[in-house]
């Protein structure tokens, strides 16, 4: 009981344990997990990362003419689990994780537009498959 009173008195004069958050950055461990970085030149477009990502934060859309893939990443869906980094094959290693968290953004692909990307990712792949089939039949 006495000890507690003494402690309380001591706490009156010590500096606060909290920090002045918006004016001071909150401390971050260097091991902390954060956003996923993508290096396009290394990617072999195996789509493994899209397959494993639990919330579907990585999506690839496919161009209907050149059949090229485009990488889309939604930092607000990402849960920083780094499952994609582990899924990326050793021959590519196109993904890596940094310890920054998602900043506020005015990216027009977020929010409602992300649903469009999701839809396009599904549809474009099916469309390209059909296109390829037609092409094959034409050439044979």
């Amino acid at each position: 009981m006495l000890k507690a009173a003494f402690n309380a008195l001591k706490n009156l004069f010590s500096t606060p344990a909290t920090i002045d958050y918006p004016f001071e950055k909150s401390p971050k461990n260097k091991e902390a997990r954060g956003l996923i970085l993508f290096e396009e030149p290394k990617c072999i477009w195996c789509l493994k990362c899209e397959d494993v990502c639990p919330p579907g934060a990585i999506r690839f859309t496919q161009d209907r003419e050149s059949f090229d893939y485009t990488y889309h990443y939604n930092p607000y869906l990402c849960i920083y689990c780094s499952e994609c980094v582990r899924a990326c094959p050793d021959s590519a290693v196109a993904l890596s994780q940094c310890n920054e968290l998602s900043p506020p953004t005015d990216d027009k692909n977020m929010n409602d537009n992300w649903f469009k990307i999701e839809k396009e990712a599904e549809e474009s792949k099916i469309a390209v498959k059909e296109l390829k089939k037609i092409k094959k039949e034409e050439s044979s």
């Binding site: 461990n29 091991e31 902390a32 920083y80 689990c81 499952e83």
Partner: peptide
């Protein structure tokens, strides 16, 4: 916890 798993609360540590 943050040092060990990378996150403070949602560890996503076990796979």
């Amino acid at each position: 916890q943050e040092a060990m798993t990378g996150n403070r609360i949602q560890f996503d540590y076990v796979s």
